[in-house]
Deep mutational scan, measured.
Amino acid sequence: MSDQEAKPSTEDLGDKKEGEYIKLKVIGQDSSEIHFKVKMTTHLKKLKESYCQRQGVPMNSLRFLFEGQRIADNHTPKELGMEEEDVIEVYQEQTGGHSTV
Rank of each mutant, 00 (worst) to 15 (best):
residue 1 M to K: 07
residue 1 M to C: 07
residue 1 M to D: 07
residue 2 S to I: 13
residue 2 S to P: 13
residue 3 D to P: 06
residue 3 D to R: 09
residue 3 D to W: 05
residue 3 D to H: 12
residue 4 Q to F: 14
residue 4 Q to T: 14
residue 4 Q to A: 11
residue 4 Q to H: 11
residue 4 Q to E: 06
residue 5 E to A: 13
residue 5 E to S: 12
residue 6 A to N: 15
residue 6 A to T: 14
residue 8 P to W: 07
residue 11 E to P: 06
residue 11 E to T: 06
residue 12 D to K: 11
residue 12 D to R: 13
residue 13 L to M: 08
residue 13 L to N: 11
residue 14 G to Y: 15
residue 14 G to Q: 14
residue 15 D to K: 11
residue 17 K to R: 13
residue 18 E to Y: 10
residue 18 E to R: 11
residue 18 E to F: 11
residue 18 E to K: 13
residue 19 G to W: 08
residue 19 G to H: 10
residue 19 G to E: 13
residue 19 G to V: 13
residue 19 G to C: 11
residue 20 E to T: 01
residue 20 E to N: 15
residue 20 E to W: 05
residue 20 E to L: 11
residue 22 I to L: 07
residue 22 I to G: 05
residue 22 I to M: 12
residue 22 I to E: 00
residue 22 I to S: 06
residue 23 K to F: 02
residue 23 K to P: 01
residue 23 K to I: 13
residue 24 L to W: 00
residue 24 L to Q: 03
residue 24 L to P: 01
residue 25 K to G: 02
residue 25 K to Y: 02
residue 25 K to W: 01
residue 25 K to E: 04
residue 25 K to M: 03
residue 26 V to D: 00
residue 26 V to Q: 05
residue 27 I to N: 09
residue 27 I to Q: 04
residue 27 I to R: 04
residue 27 I to L: 15
residue 27 I to A: 02
residue 28 G to P: 03
residue 28 G to M: 05
residue 29 Q to G: 01
residue 29 Q to R: 14
residue 30 D to L: 06
residue 31 S to Y: 15
residue 32 S to L: 05
residue 33 E to K: 08
residue 33 E to N: 05
residue 33 E to C: 03
residue 34 I to Y: 04
residue 34 I to S: 05
residue 35 H to Q: 10
residue 35 H to T: 15
residue 35 H to V: 09
residue 36 F to Q: 04
residue 36 F to D: 04
residue 36 F to H: 02
residue 37 K to F: 03
residue 37 K to T: 03
residue 38 V to S: 01
residue 38 V to D: 03
residue 38 V to M: 15
residue 39 K to W: 09
residue 39 K to V: 00
residue 39 K to Y: 07
residue 39 K to I: 02
residue 41 T to V: 00
residue 42 T to D: 06
residue 42 T to H: 05
residue 43 H to P: 13
residue 43 H to E: 13
residue 43 H to G: 11
residue 44 L to Q: 03
residue 44 L to Y: 05
residue 44 L to F: 14
residue 45 K to Y: 05
residue 45 K to S: 10
residue 46 K to Y: 11
residue 47 L to R: 02
residue 47 L to T: 03
residue 48 K to E: 01
residue 48 K to S: 01
residue 49 E to G: 06
residue 49 E to M: 09
residue 50 S to F: 15
residue 51 Y to M: 01
residue 53 Q to W: 15
residue 54 R to V: 12
residue 55 Q to G: 05
residue 56 G to H: 15
residue 56 G to Q: 14
residue 57 V to A: 13
residue 57 V to M: 08
residue 57 V to R: 15
residue 58 P to D: 02
residue 59 M to N: 11
residue 60 N to M: 03
residue 60 N to L: 04
residue 60 N to Y: 06
residue 60 N to K: 06
residue 60 N to Q: 06
residue 61 S to F: 08
residue 61 S to V: 02
residue 61 S to C: 08
residue 62 L to G: 00
residue 63 R to G: 04
residue 64 F to N: 00
residue 64 F to T: 02
residue 65 L to Y: 15
residue 66 F to R: 01
residue 66 F to E: 04
residue 66 F to G: 03
residue 67 E to L: 09
residue 67 E to I: 01
residue 67 E to P: 04
residue 67 E to S: 04
residue 67 E to D: 08
residue 68 G to H: 00
residue 68 G to F: 01
residue 68 G to W: 04
residue 69 Q to G: 08
residue 70 R to G: 13
residue 70 R to H: 15
residue 70 R to K: 08
residue 70 R to L: 12
residue 71 I to C: 00
residue 71 I to K: 07
residue 73 D to C: 04
residue 74 N to K: 14
residue 74 N to M: 07
residue 74 N to H: 08
residue 75 H to G: 02
residue 75 H to M: 07
residue 77 P to V: 01
residue 78 K to S: 15
residue 78 K to V: 10
residue 78 K to L: 05
residue 78 K to N: 14
residue 79 E to F: 03
residue 79 E to A: 06
residue 79 E to I: 06
residue 80 L to H: 02
residue 81 G to R: 07
residue 82 M to N: 02
residue 82 M to G: 04
residue 82 M to A: 03
residue 82 M to I: 01
residue 82 M to W: 03
residue 83 E to M: 14
residue 83 E to F: 05
residue 83 E to N: 10
residue 84 E to C: 15
residue 84 E to W: 14
residue 84 E to H: 04
residue 84 E to L: 05
residue 84 E to A: 09
residue 86 D to Y: 06
residue 86 D to R: 02
residue 86 D to H: 03
residue 87 V to H: 09
residue 88 I to Y: 03
residue 90 V to Y: 03
residue 90 V to T: 14
residue 91 Y to D: 06
residue 91 Y to K: 05
residue 91 Y to T: 04
residue 91 Y to F: 10
residue 92 Q to E: 08
residue 93 E to S: 10
residue 93 E to G: 08
residue 93 E to T: 15
residue 93 E to H: 12
residue 94 Q to D: 05
residue 96 G to F: 04
residue 97 G to P: 00
residue 97 G to H: 00
residue 98 H to Y: 10
residue 98 H to F: 10
residue 98 H to I: 08
residue 99 S to H: 08
residue 99 S to R: 10
residue 99 S to K: 08
residue 100 T to A: 10
residue 100 T to G: 09
residue 100 T to S: 11
residue 100 T to F: 08
residue 101 V to P: 06
